[in-house]
């Protein structure tokens, strides 16, 4: 458990002309990951396939952002979010994740698809302090649920200041 939470503080990068691609089934288990994903995450394909996507989750990610993400996807919408992921060895990499539902020919959601692109330094200058503040708020209460609600409220306050539209906010920075 301690080893899985190990963080090196080393940031990994990938090319602006590369996309990290992964797919999951409807329950969030990985069904596909491309070579860029494998290279960055430091796992082999067989280590990743069938595992929950949360295996690359970084402890610095605010839960509020995942709540927002799943709320949007659950409603059948696309969502963009800046996400920091954890590599097998404890390194990390920032991405701008675009998550969409994958539908079969009948339009039924059969899983989720994520294209992840490089995050600009300009965007991270806004996102990193925002996520840090959300994390502090989430950790500010003993009750996990209350913490998430407080973070959620804070995020919406910030969005309201910036015009209220999350999609616009995330695409404009």
């Amino acid at each position: 458990m301690v080893a899985s939470k190990l963080l090196t503080g080393v940031a990994r990068t990938f090319g602006d002309d590369e996309i990290i691609v992964s797919k999951t089934d409807a329950t969030g288990r990985i069904t596909y990951c491309n070579d860029v994903f494998i290279r960055l995450a430091g796992y082999t394909e067989s280590e990743l396939l069938g595992q929950p996507h949360s295996m690359i989750r970084h402890p610095h990610m605010p839960r509020t952002i995942f709540k927002l993400l799943w709320e949007r996807i659950g409603a059948g919408n696309e969502v963009f979010a800046y996400v920091v992921n954890r590599c097998k060895n404890g390194d990390h990499y920032w991405v701008l994740a675009h998550v969409t539902p994958d539908r079969d020919e009948a339009g039924k959601v059969v899983g989720y698809h994520s294209n992840r692109r490089t995050a600009t330094a300009q965007a991270l200058a806004v996102i990193e302090p925002l996520y840090a503040s959300l994390r502090d708020i989430e950790a500010g209460t003993a009750d996990r649920k209350a913490g998430l609600e407080a973070g959620w409220a804070r995020l919406h306050d910030i969005l309201a200041e910036k015009g209220g539209d999350y999609d616009r906010f995330v695409l404009d920075i």
Binding site: D16, D17, E18, I19, V21, N34, E78, L96, H98, T100, H113, N115, R117, T118, D167, R168, L171, D172
Partner: peptide
């Protein structure tokens, strides 16, 4: 990966245009 990313982007951008959200463009990065 390239085909699908482009298709998804084009789909999202066109859908957004339908509801006048012209800021949701295709993201050419990647």
């Amino acid at each position: 990966d390239q085909f699908e990313a482009f298709a998804k982007e084009a789909d999202a951008a066109m859908g957004a245009a339908l509801s006048s959200r012209y800021y949701r463009k295709i993201m050419p990065r990647g």
